[in-house]
Simulated scan of single mutants.
Amino acid sequence: MSLPDIDHLLATLEQQLNHYLQHHGISNPLLIGIRTGGVWIAEELQRRLSLSGDMGVLDISFYRDDFTRKGLHPQVKGSQLPDSIEDRDIILIDDVIKSGRTIRAAMNELFDYGRPARIALVTLLDVGQRELPVQPDVCAHSMALASKQVIKLSGPEPLLLTVS
């Protein structure tokens, strides 16, 4: 299976996110990356869009609904968010959206920190196979995977997509 070029995907994501921010009149978004791939993408978008200010990091390990099935991820590092997300425009970023369960867990955690004005979802890839009704607001590329295939983003230097 041929995967799209990561630099092309990031450029597409930058362009689409910039359009989204302008269209919705968002001038001071808070980018929050879901650990680990979403954090790498959020850092890159923060740089490319020349956004100043804080950036957040979510580790949703304790919020997953399949925690008892998968067990605790051995590298739980915790979340780092600004003092308040109350009434902020949040741009939630993940590398790949598949079932929607990671995003549900991320939103549960965010609401434990406060009530944002808006949460927009940005993903590098959408591979379908939803189990929950969650769709990205901005996505660089959609593709189909065989049911057993998994896409992995490694990085941060360099960012590299692989499928297994």
Rank of each mutant, 00 (worst) to 15 (best):
G56N: 08
G56P: 12
G56C: 08
V57I: 15
L58R: 05
L58C: 13
D59P: 08
I60C: 10
I60Y: 05
S61F: 07
S61L: 12
S61V: 15
F62E: 15
Y63H: 08
Y63D: 12
R64V: 07
R64W: 02
D65V: 08
D65A: 12
D66W: 07
D66F: 11
F67Q: 12
F67D: 06
T68R: 12
T68D: 12
T68F: 09
K70D: 09
G71A: 07
L72N: 07
H73T: 15
H73N: 15
H73C: 13
H73W: 14
P74D: 13
V76C: 10
V76K: 14
K77T: 14
K77S: 14
G78N: 11
G78S: 12
G78M: 10
S79A: 07
L81F: 11
L81G: 09
P82Q: 03
P82D: 01
D83H: 04
D83N: 09
D83Y: 03
I85S: 06
I85Y: 01
I85T: 04
D87K: 13
D87V: 06
R88D: 06
R88L: 11
I90Q: 03
I90E: 05
I90M: 07
I93Y: 04
D94F: 04
D95F: 03
D95V: 06
D95P: 06
V96C: 10
V96K: 04
K98I: 03
K98W: 10
S99R: 07
R101D: 00
R101W: 02
R101T: 00
T102R: 02
T102G: 05
I103Q: 01
A105M: 08
A105I: 11
N108T: 11
N108I: 07
L110I: 08
L110V: 05
L110W: 00
Y113A: 11
R115K: 13
R115W: 00
R115N: 10
P116I: 10
P116L: 05
R118C: 09
R118Y: 03
R118M: 06
I119P: 08
L121C: 12
L121V: 15
V122P: 02
D126M: 00
V127F: 02
V127M: 04
G128A: 07
G128N: 07
R130H: 02
E131M: 09
P133Y: 00
P133H: 00
P133R: 01
V134P: 00
V134R: 00
V134T: 04
V134Y: 01
P136C: 04
P136F: 02
D137T: 00
V138M: 01
V138F: 02
V138P: 00
V138S: 01
A140D: 02
H141T: 02
H141N: 02
S142A: 14
S142M: 09
S142N: 11
M143K: 06
M143S: 07
M143V: 09
A144P: 01
A144K: 09
A144E: 10
L145S: 07
L145F: 10
L145P: 10
L145M: 10
S147H: 13
S147F: 08
S147G: 03
S147L: 13
Q149Y: 04
V150D: 08
I151G: 06
K152V: 14
L153E: 10
L153C: 11
L153H: 05
S154C: 03
S154H: 13
G155N: 13
